[in-house]
């Protein structure tokens, strides 16, 4: 890869981004109209015009729309986090959970589930949300602290630290599982599979203060990530404050991932695969890859959730299964397709 392939004409750049945006908006508009129950679009129109609100309108506005928006936000956050970490850690296998953030969240969730008497609510958040968020933020703080060391810490060290966090969290989860009553194991396993089950907009609104700054922080570092892709020395030579970018990318991915994991559990695959797919399709310019990953990740998870809530109606299946089942073959196709 030479720097020449990175530079795109502004027109082409905008055109490519526009394609992603149009597709994402189309998914966002269409997805709420499909679900386990048939819904007359006229009912929705009536409700928008304030004429009559019935069960149909409730299903659309209180159940499907918030769920679609949540899926988009979670998918987008995970994909853009994965895209950034793959560059910063210089590892194609990097994904949002590699630094142990989801592991910390999972410990929180499992703890909250294992103590049923614990019924804490904070604003829109339930006990599980509160503890998941605390776990995510604790792990994120640890990584940030590590990256802020006086002498520059190598990315391999950070990577290994993240893997260690994950192992520690796994052990803590196993210990909790070993101690609790068996009835609770099912709820724990279900949480681990990820889900976008939500009613109303309160939780969604509660997460925006985390997800928006997180994703924004990553977007503004896209030009620096372009330099970092060529190596830390090269980036430093071009005037990039490497240590600062590292820290802020960890902060951004930490916030965005914490928001996603708190609301949806550890949904796998999106953060790993979507950025790679976007790079295959649209090149390596991070200024395009990051926003395109957000749009593609959001659209992808929204579609996966659409499958999760319709194919086995009147029941549902965990969305994490769908992301892997659809994403796997699609990604393999992209991987092995000859590039023109």
């Amino acid at each position: 890869m030479t720097s020449a392939t990175l530079v795109q004409s502004p027109g082409r750049f905008m055109a490519r981004l526009a394609v992603y945006a149009v597709l994402a908006v189309a998914v966002l508009i269409l997805a709420p109209f499909f679900g386990a129950e048939p819904l007359d679009p006229g009912v929705v129109l009536h409700a928008v015009l304030g004429k009559s609100a019935g069960v149909g309108a409730d299903i659309f506005f209180l159940h499907r729309l918030p769920r679609v928006l949540l899926a988009f936000l979670v998918g987008g956050s995970l994909a853009v986090s994965g895209a950034s970490l793959q560059v910063v850690l210089r590892n194609p296998l990097a994904e949002p959970f590699i630094l142990g953030i989801a592991g910390g969240g999972a410990v929180g969730a499992v703890f909250a589930i294992s103590v049923p008497a614990l019924m804490i609510t904070a604003g829109p958040f339930s006990t599980v949300h509160v503890f998941t968020l605390a776990g995510c933020l604790a792990c994120m703080a640890a990584i940030y602290f590590l990256a802020s060391g006086a002498t520059g810490v190598s990315m391999n060290t950070i990577l290994l630290a993240g893997v260690t966090f994950n192992v520690l969290c796994g052990a803590a989860i196993l210990l909790l599982r070993y101690l609790v009553s068996p009835h609770l194991l099912v709820t724990m396993d279900r949480w681990m599979m990820g889900g976008l089950d939500v009613v109303g907009y309160r939780e969604l609104a509660g997460l925006l203060p985390l997800a928006v700054p997180g994703v924004f922080l990553l977007f503004i570092h896209a030009p620096a990530l372009n330099q970092l892709a060529f190596g830390e020395e090269m980036a430093a030579g071009h005037g990039v404050d490497v240590a600062k970018v590292h820290k802020q990318v960890f902060l951004g991915t930490g916030l965005a991932t914490a928001a996603a994991v708190t609301m949806a559990g550890p949904i796998g695959f999106v953060g790993l695969v979507v950025p790679h797919a976007v790079r295959r399709l649209s090149g390596h310019d991070q200024r395009l890859v990051l926003p395109a990953s957000f749009l593609a990740g959001g659209g992808f998870l929204t579609l996966c959730d659409l499958f999760a809530r319709t194919v086995v109606a009147p029941t549902e299946m965990p969305v994490g299964i769908i992301t892997a089942m659809i994403g796997g073959p699609v990604f393999l196709r992209i991987l092995f397709k000859k590039r023109d």
Binding site: E37, V55, D58, I59, H63, R309, A313, P314, T315, E316
Partner: peptide, 20 residues
Amino acid sequence: FADVNHPYPEASKEVLIRRA
């Protein structure tokens, strides 16, 4: 949800609402 053949399925909430 008696029409579901699986013994312990995860229920769709919108179906729950419709079946009142």
